[in-house]
């Protein structure tokens, strides 16, 4: 892959990371709001927080750019560590947030039911419908 193509793709991933991270925040906000509003049904996907991982591309770009400025050279020297710490933090956040939100939902008196729209899931997480009434 040529360097130009690589930089274009990295730029594209940086842009894609914006809606991904915004969506992860929006999902948390929306779920908390639904609890406050005491909605009858709250849709929650336990894997949505993994969208935070896309922010790693911002760190790649930042540490890459840091190498160009003398004042930020120490940052560039520690790029490997910064990237790894950010990634691990992202993974921890992606696992803690669903745990916390699910607890908040059950504490508010909601019961977790399987989302019937999800016929099959390949990997991480589960799509749930939280409701006050027992599962059908």
């Amino acid at each position: 892959m040529s360097k130009t193509t690589a930089l274009i793709l990295v730029g594209l991933f940086n842009l894609l990371a914006i809606p991904a991270v915004v969506y992860a925040f929006y999902d948390i906000f929306e779920t908390l709001q639904a609890i406050v509003r005491a909605d009858e049904q709250i849709y929650y996907d336990t894997a949505t927080s993994y969208f935070f991982l896309m922010s790693i591309f911002w760190v790649f770009t930042f540490t890459g750019m840091a190498g160009r400025y003398k004042i930020l050279k120490p940052v560039a020297r520690l790029a490997g560590g910064i990237i790894m710490v950010w990634f691990i933090a992202g993974l921890i956040i992606a696992n803690i947030i669903p745990y916390w939100l699910q607890h908040s939902l059950t504490d508010a008196g909601y019961i977790a039911c399987h989302d019937p729209r999800e016929v099959h899931r390949t990997g991480r997480g589960e799509s749930l419908i939280y409701q006050k009434t027992p599962c059908p």
Partner: peptide
């Protein structure tokens, strides 16, 4: 892409 990008 990340592997081929110069600094990253």
């Amino acid at each position: 892409a990340v592997g081929s990008a110069a600094i990253l």
